[in-house]
Design a binder for these strands. Structure first.
Lengths: 138, 138
DNA sequence: CTATAATCCTATCGGTTTACTAGGTTTTAA
DNA sequence: TTAAAACCTAGTAAACCGATAGGATTATAG
């Protein structure tokens, strides 16, 4: 299950990406339009800034803006930052690998084999979708 | 993330499927060989029995056995019973649908569109893999 | 008939995560 | 100088997870 944090983060990024101009967008505006608790959203925006997706401007007329082009932001990257691993099991995760303590040999593990396939299928979809694809309406 | 419950459940099913004969397999045997807490496994086996994957026999020489052929058990079915929805968001789940309360229109939701693709990719993999595929070594 | 081995059942529990909320501080533009 | 915005830290209620505890029930073997 995708956490609300990730879901809200993606929605916020898409909201900003849909704007033509590059003027900073306030968290309050996104919060109202996307029905997200403002304080919660603020913490998410902060994280997106710290991880290099957004820039920010403080004070009156400030807000958040995209640093890269929407077409250059893969959804794999967004999800990995907000949610963590894309794999369903740590032992098949490319970026967050962890050995299972119950499993003596990954190569003969039935779950392992299956989850590699699931991971690859998800990576395929999330890797070929960019923020631009996501943000476009309809 | 896949819960341990689901992971253990799949391992247990695969363990039983690998046996040539159809004699009941005890939870204690699976628990030892797959390094799973026995009491926890018992509750999982019970669930798998109640949901129609396993039959059971009580008393000495008892245990659990498969009701269908391994080749007829799709991993989608197993995961849906143990884990719940395969989709990452309830609003794209086929079997556990729920409307998002923040989302006025699913058709224009960027997350929705993306998650449908992820769901379909996962369904593809989990639907074409059966317990037989999973259980076969290497 | 009895001992034992197995499933079955209910309850509980400590730890972690989630989704916020509260209450501010700091910075900037008008 | 004021207001609006991001920034920061902490806390918190609820849910969920991964067990554990303690038995009740049933079946087999001797």
């Amino acid at each position: 299950m995708l956490s609300k944090k990730t879901k809200y983060g993606i929605k916020a990024l898409a909201y900003i990406a849909r704007k033509k101009d590059r003027k900073p967008v306030q968290a309050s505006e996104i919060s109202e339009n996307e029905n997200i608790s403002q304080k919660f959203l603020e913490s998410i925006m902060l994280e997106l800034r710290k991880s290099g997706f957004l820039g920010s401007k403080k004070g009156k007329g400030g807000g958040y803006y995209l640093i890269k082009e929407p077409g250059e932001i893969r959804m794999t990257a967004v999800i990995r930052v907000l949610e963590g691993p894309i794999a369903m099991v740590p032992c098949v995760s490319l970026n967050y690998y962890e050995k299972c303590d119950d499993c003596p040999d990954e190569n003969t593990c039935s779950v392992h084999k299956l989850m590699i396939q699931v991971r690859d299928a998800s990576l395929q979809v999330l890797g070929e979708n960019t923020l631009e694809d996501i943000a476009s309406l309809q």
